[in-house]
């Protein structure tokens, strides 16, 4: 395995990591305010399709990105409406989002593109050379060379991780969000509007999942396929838990799980363990996540009020 191959592998791994990371960040934001969003897989599907749609008709992936964010926000608002305004069960609402996404995207794919299975390929997409971030000075440094020519979406994912960390742990809003996620009643007694904070967190989180979808169809791949996101939202959910509900933790987990996704190509390149079945590596994220949840390896504990609807005592 030479240095070029390593660099290619790292770049490929980052390509897989990006959508996982966006999904995980969605979960981090939403769940730190106390709202579980297992619909993030469906939101990614919305983002993936509309991101492609915008990019396809405008010939600019940026338009796709904006459209993906907008649609993500809209679906997030639906989830917030059900779970926050009407105290609906957060898991049921998430299931609804996933199922709607499944049916509606297929419907729209066939309606708009008159195709089944795959959308047309994009020429202008974030993976294309024009939309990459070129850092030639890195190219000569071993290992870091992989970072010299990456899609802008990859960088965006890592920048947003930092932004989210700052938001959660160094801003007033972040402190309040975490308060709502830990003890909404206490937040109310301090004059914090739990509902408003949760609405914000859910919608902003959904926007991130939307970006994740866009990354999938316009950066990792250059088109939408009907099987997207192929459970990546759930890997993101796992990454969030494995990362202990923190942005950097989620990033670490996403990198690990992203690596797990490309083990097969590493095997192909290196020739190590040629008979390892892909199924045995694909389950890695889920097994690890169960292990940390069960406390076999470390311990990951959710915010105290995560998943619980909040009723204001207004009588």
């Amino acid at each position: 395995m030479n240095i070029t191959q390593i660099n290619v592998t790292i770049a490929q791994m980052l390509d897989y990591t990006t959508p996982i990371l966006f999904a995980a960040l969605c979960g981090v934001l939403s769940e730190n305010s106390g709202v579980v969003n297992i619909g993030l897989d469906g939101i990614m599907r919305f983002g993936a399709f509309f991101g492609l749609l915008g990019a396809y008709f405008s010939h600019s992936p940026w338009v796709g990105l904006l459209l993906g964010i907008a649609v993500g926000c809209a679906v997030g608002a639906l989830h917030a409406f059900i779970t926050i305004r009407w105290n609906g069960d957060q898991t049921v609402s998430g299931v609804a989002v996933n199922v709607i996404a499944l049916g509606l995207m297929t419907y729209l794919l066939e309606y708009i593109f008159s195709t089944t299975g795959y959308s047309p390929q994009l020429e202008n997409y974030f993976g294309a050379q024009a939309y990459r971030v070129h850092l030639p000075f890195l190219a000569k440094i071993p290992l870091l060379g992989a970072l010299s020519n990456l899609s802008v979406m990859i960088w965006l994912a890592f920048i947003l991780t930092i932004v989210l960390h700052v938001l959660l742990y160094h801003t007033v809003l972040g402190l309040r969000m975490r308060t709502c996620g830990e003890n909404p009643k206490a937040a109310t007694t301090l004059g914090i509007n739990v509902f408003r904070v949760r609405w914000f967190a859910v919608i902003a989180g959904a926007a991130l999942a939307g970006i994740g979808g866009v990354a999938l169809s316009t950066s990792s791949f250059s088109g939408f396929s009907d099987s997207m996101p192929n459970g990546i939202g759930f890997i993101g959910l796992a990454a969030m838990i494995f990362g202990k509900w923190t942005p950097f933790g989620a990033m670490g987990a996403a990198l690990l799980f992203g690596t797990g996704q490309i083990v097969q190509s590493i095997i192909a390149v290196t020739g190590i363990a040629p008979n390892l079945a892909p199924g045995l590596t694909l389950i890695l994220p889920y097994v690890l996540t169960l292990a940390v949840l069960a406390g076999f390896v470390g311990r990951s504990v959710a915010p105290a009020a995560d998943g619980l609807p909040y009723y204001k005592e207004q009588r």
Binding site: V172, L175, T179, E182, N183, K185, A186, T189, I192
Partner: peptide, 24 residues
């Protein structure tokens, strides 16, 4: 009405935090 995971300071100031711009 305290959050066990938070530091004493965070518990005392939340809702009326000293700010630097939007930062805590």
């Amino acid at each position: 009405m305290l959050i066990p995971r938070f530091s004493v300071t965070e518990n005392i100031v939340v809702g009326d935090e000293p700010r630097k711009g939007i930062f805590f």
